[in-house]
Design a protein around this nucleic acid. Sequence first.
DNA 1: TAAACGTGGGG
DNA 2: TCCCCAAGTTT
Length: 352
Amino acid sequence: MLNAPQTFATPTQRVLDWYGQAHRKLPWRAPPGQLAEPYRVWLSEIMLQQTNVATATPYYFNFLQKWPDVAALARAEPEAIMQAWAGLGYYSRARNLHACAQLICAEHGGEFPRREAQLLKLPGIGPYTAAAIAAMAFGASAVVVDGNIERIMTRMFALEAPLPKAKPEIRSHMASLTPARHAGDFAQALMDIGATLCAVKSPNCTACPLQADCLAAKAGNAATYPRRAEKVTRPHRQGHVYIAQKLDGSVLVQTNGPRGLFGGMTCLPHSGWATKDAQGQALPPLPLAWQELKGEVTHVFTHFSLSLTVHSGQAADMAAPNGMRWVGLAQLEFEALPSLMRKVLAKWRESQ
DNA sequence: TAAACGTGGGG
DNA sequence: TCCCCAAGTTT
């Protein structure tokens, strides 16, 4: 089977050919046909979990500059990592990133394990990321399945089972297509196709190298895949947040424990919003003459939306309550503040 | 298995 | 404005 004409090429070969000439150039990527550095693949893959390329890219450069390799990252202060991650969301990724770096240095001699099964054991590395690192950094013929590839497989094979039920079937199709060599390029090619051609809303089938292999393209209904289970309605929650300021300008903050929403991050004192019972109950951290700011701060999370009433109060030169601390106004920007808290502070400043 | 876990951009 | 959801993992 030498020199098979393009017309008779396999879908896999068509995708690899397309990648050679149409691939996106991304900072963590190796050129087609080459392997990328494990540290860069890992760092980018963690950042890209549920996160757009455009959003993750500046964070990737910042991390790489601060911590050029896994040993440097392992030595970093956890607070510095959380601060650098602030705004990216899903903060358990940052905590696991540090734990993973330390584990690699302590138990793997500072080198990433090459085998998928061993990668899978590391904190923050699940089935997708383990396969991606094994394929892109080590050349393994790993079966990489992310959201893009799920979308492409359900369209190519017109899979009617709704996600996540279709996942085993998707994986099986992807396994059949994955080449023995260049599996990393193949996966990245499919992700590029998913991002630029096989889009969620209006797929560009005529430009797709898989058009001839795609049942949904033939049927003209690609946009209806993947089928999805019914979405649950997002509950709404309420809470109160308190900005206490001393005469020297410093503001009262607290650092969250490692788990749960905003785990490991810096927050303004607040009433809590995690449970239905706790919502809306004002619970100031200090007995001050609190003033309520006009208008609420709203924020939408994946699993609930939130309205926050903002209170401001002038404090005398008093000690911070247990578990809290005063932070100078100029130092606030260097805290690991999630976007919600920055939003609250912005509203407060604009009310001053 | 299903829920928890952030955020910003696009239609 | 509102809804959807993006290179998932953990519990």
